[in-house]
Design a protein around this nucleic acid. Structure first.
Lengths: 334, 334
DNA sequence: CTGAAAGCGCTTACAG
DNA sequence: CTGAAAGCGCTTACAG
């Protein structure tokens, strides 16, 4: 494969590879005549030269790649939105976002050694050993949404970036209670892969119930079929005291609950109020339209991108805090 | 960063780097004593040695990465399923699937030069120039679902892999007609980014209508809100002759149509039959449950993986054909 | 202001 | 059966 190298550009321009490198990388601290610069740029362009990423990575020890590791759990439109925005943030600075879908799961070390990314963003938690190994290799490690439970949202000190999931649950309860309900049910997904996410949200629901002096929330598993959801609905209706409102793990579960209610000839919010999380596009297409907690993925992506770029610039110290990204979107179901 | 290199392993094992490389790569055509092999493997393990991907890529000109370029359009669970399975197929052979979300769209050349992948899989069409540039760089290029319209499905000659989208449309019509309908409507998404996908499916719907002597399908754009869908529904009901059944671009559009019908106090399939595409999880949660065309992403992922691996092994010639992957999932809406 | 040279960590003819 | 040496394409002290 006759690829064009910096040596070709050098020869063709009548300069050394050193000069080519200086010009093309806008190296500071060297002075090169405007004429030479132009000539080098020109031939590079003409020859269609693009530097070998492998060589550059080998030499400098760092690449322009940012690796995002997705956990095994099912993705929804929320994640896609986050990734799209993050990719945009990074692209503006010459960084390329690459996403690995975790299901195949070879060991994580194999993954980052094969990619040599400049930063790794984990949407699932890393174990401390892995985290340390990556950092030793000079890779910036950005933590997971699950890493902590600080009131007010993210905390940049450990590289964690995202919204405290317990707050999501607390917000759901607060809205439900504000609408006059006092007996809360929780709709948990049956998919075991998401337990890491379910737990903090449920914990938030629990703690808010306690704080407000409500009875313990009634937990029901809800699968993605009508029968399973209907059974959960019957369970809530049969519990004493009768559940009045359900906080669902996310919109998908909430929509299943709505379907289960229809099968039981019940309707929201009168028979049972329902609130989801994420505000996926389908949320406005259900009957009744779904009330839900939105997470402003754009803001989170921006914050995450900023964290990566800050480190890139060697900027240290704390990032500006993420700010409030949670918002209750009130529609009809609660 | 004191990373452990093959030289470290060599020194520690009392052999040369050559031997280390031979052992760790299972190089054929060299004979190395079992004792040496064991010793090298052992120290490598003990030292936590993992080869530098950058160095290996620079030396050999090829990496263990497979790059999948996603187009700008919205992804659904179907794509995720495809990617998960593909990643699994490739992982079995030591290849790592990396996905780039196209929205950010730096030039494609920048992308593959930065990654140096062994193969690039495009779910959108590549322009011939890009395709050729990648091939010149020794990268295997796997084409898009859109590349052709050969009856019977895929065609491996050009590297294209996937299901002919026109057949999807034809199958929708065939099912609708089989259920006794003769006036067909088509529900197209309003999102302009998917036109490349809409067109072949719609063309399939059209051609099947012609083949069966039915009137031209009545096209209506359907957005992801109830109002937009309701308007489309009114349009179909008002057309002469009145539309009896709707083929939707995909399940999301079909679900919007169902929502629009409910707003108009109409019900499927009696007032209007509806069929989608993809069989997303929500398809079984609508009322009535959605009839749809499923695409067997598993089979497609397997086929795609096989294409990549075949080239990896230097196997040439045609792959076994993909076989039938389309299937009508009959529920209640049509 | 520009160039010759070393070296990043690997693989692979080639020599012993 | 094993090792010394070259070279992949780049960047970056260092010398001129």
């Amino acid at each position: 494969v006759p690829s064009v190298t910096s040596a070709d550009v050098a020869r063709e321009s009548g300069v050394s590879r050193t000069t080519v490198s200086y010009v093309l990388n806008d190296t500071t601290g060297v002075t090169i005549s405007a004429a030479t610069r132009a000539r080098v740029r020109d031939t590079a362009q003409r020859l269609g030269y693009t530097p070998s990423a492998a060589a550059r990575t080998l030499r400098t020890g760092r690449s322009d790649l940012v690796l995002c590791v997705l956990p095994d759990w099912p993705r929804g439109p929320a994640i896609d939105t986050l990734l799209d925005h993050l990719a945009g943030e990074l692209a503006g600075r010459g960084l390329i976002l690459l996403v690995h879908h975790g299901r195949a799961s070879r060991p994580l070390s194999e993954l980052w050694r094969a990619v040599t990314p400049r930063a790794v963003v984990g949407l699932t938690a890393f174990n401390p050993q892995e985290r340390e190994a990556m950092q030793r290799a000079g890779i910036q490690v950005l933590g997971s949404m699950l890493d902590e439970d600080v009131p007010g949202g993210g905390d940049s000190s450990s590289g964690a970036f995202s919204v405290c999931q317990a707050r999501v649950g607390r917000l759901q309860v607060r809205h439900l209670v504000g609408a006059g309900h006092r007996v809360i049910g929780y709709a948990a997904p049956t998919d075991r892969r998401v337990t890491d996410f379910v737990e903090p949200r449920l914990a938030g629901v629990r703690s808010e119930c306690v704080a407000l002096g409500l009875p313990e929330p009634v937990l029901q598993p809800v699968g993605q079929e009508v029968a399973s959801a209907a059974e959960a609905v019957r369970g809530w209706r049969a519990s004493t005291p009768r559940v009045e409102a359900v906080a669902a793990y996310n919109d998908e579960v909430a929509i299943a609950v709505l379907a289960g209610m229809r099968a039981e000839a019940l309707s929201a919010p009168d028979d049972l109020a329902v609130i989801g999380v994420d505000d996926i596009p389908f949320a406005r297409l259900t009957v009744p339209a779904l009330t839900t907690v939105s997470q402003s993925l754009e803001a989170q992506a921006h914050h995450l991108g900023a964290a990566v770029l800050a480190d890139l610039d060697g900027r240290t110290g704390r990032l500006e805090p993420l700010g409030e990204v949670l918002d209750v979107v009130v529609r009809e179901s609660a």
